[in-house]
């Protein structure tokens, strides 16, 4: 018995090894989109787009709770339309959204990805398709005019967002927000819930998202401060996927030239914010 158990164990191990080598090989060829396949995308006829659905107005669910919509979603639709393929949204948690690109779960991320040097090191980011700024949202009566005023207050952000990074920089730079007063949530909606429940005093967030929440709670909440330097958002692809990147860049240029982007911005943000982005 023992002997058989041991040898079958070896076979299983060998099987796993062979399988994983096979998978790595597939991964390798898929990344470059070179050998054998002429398709630009992972799956012929489909553009798989990674999104964290739950970030209105950029990407969120309609009231029926299943239909994806939002600015990014419509941008994805426009791009796919010009590529002649269908959009398939892959809904992913923000935590880990980039590593799924490495494992070929989708062709690109169109999910309000801010262009930062560290992200550019590891991935391809297209030239900006829209711009955004970090803002501070607080209850009406709060006396906040700049990030310095956050000292001693309770602050919330969404984990791994540029607002989170910005808060960390500020705190490293001496802003007095204690560890136990700095809250990092999985979902942006939780930050706003906490603000309304009086459990935090300020939320640091992307302006496009803040605008959306102001809409339903504009009597209670207010944008207290907006960062001067706009934060460009790009479409994120795996390193080496140059063919698809070039196509997307060309299409986004077209969308800018024919006014589609301006119309989408008007629809979702209430104003044309495309000026000087590209």
């Amino acid at each position: 018995m023992k002997k058989i158990g041991f040898s079958s164990g070896c076979w299983i191990l060998a099987g796993i090894l062979i399988l994983s080598m096979g998978l790595t090989a597939c991964g390798g060829s898929g990344a470059g989109n070179g050998s054998g396949s002429s398709s630009l995308t992972l799956t012929e006829g489909v553009l798989k787009v990674g999104m964290e659905v739950g970030y209105p107005p950029m990407e969120y669910l309609e009231e029926d709770g299943v239909t994806v919509t939002g600015f990014d979603y419509e941008v994805a639709q426009e791009i796919a339309g010009k590529l002649g393929v269908e959009v398939e949204v892959v809904d992913t948690a923000w935590d880990g959204i980039f590593s799924s690109l490495d494992s070929n779960r989708y062709d690109c991320i169109i999910s309000s990805v801010s262009i930062t040097p560290s992200r550019q090191e590891a991935y391809i980011l297209t030239r900006p398709y829209i711009a955004n700024a970090i803002v501070i949202v607080a209850r009406n009566d709060e006396q906040i005019a700049s990030p310095e005023d956050l000292a001693g207050l309770r602050v919330a952000t969404q984990t791994e967002t540029t607002a989170d990074e910005y808060m960390r920089e500020l705190r490293d730079g001496g802003l007095a927000v204690a560890d136990e007063d700095y809250f990092v949530y999985d979902k942006i909606i939780q930050c706003f819930d906490e603000l309304l429940l009086n459990r935090v005093d300020a939320v640091m967030v992307d302006s496009v998202v803040a605008a959306y929440y102001m809409g339903s709670n504009s009597d209670k909440l207010k944008i207290k401060w907006e960062n001067d330097t706009a934060e460009p958002l790009g479409i994120c692809l795996k390193k080496g996927n140059d063919a698809l990147t070039a196509e997307i860049e060309r299409i986004v240029d077209e969308l800018y030239a024919d006014g589609t982007m301006a119309a989408l911005a008007e629809k979702y943000f209430g104003r044309d914010v495309t000026e000087g982005v590209r």
Binding site: S118, Y185, Q190, E194
Partner: peptide, 20 residues
């Protein structure tokens, strides 16, 4: 971690993302 309490697991993933 979903209610922004930092336990061992949350702190681990924070380190993972900051130290890459």
């Amino acid at each position: 971690s979903t209610i922004a309490l930092v336990d061992l697991m949350k702190h681990t993933s924070q380190i993972q993302s900051s130290a890459a």
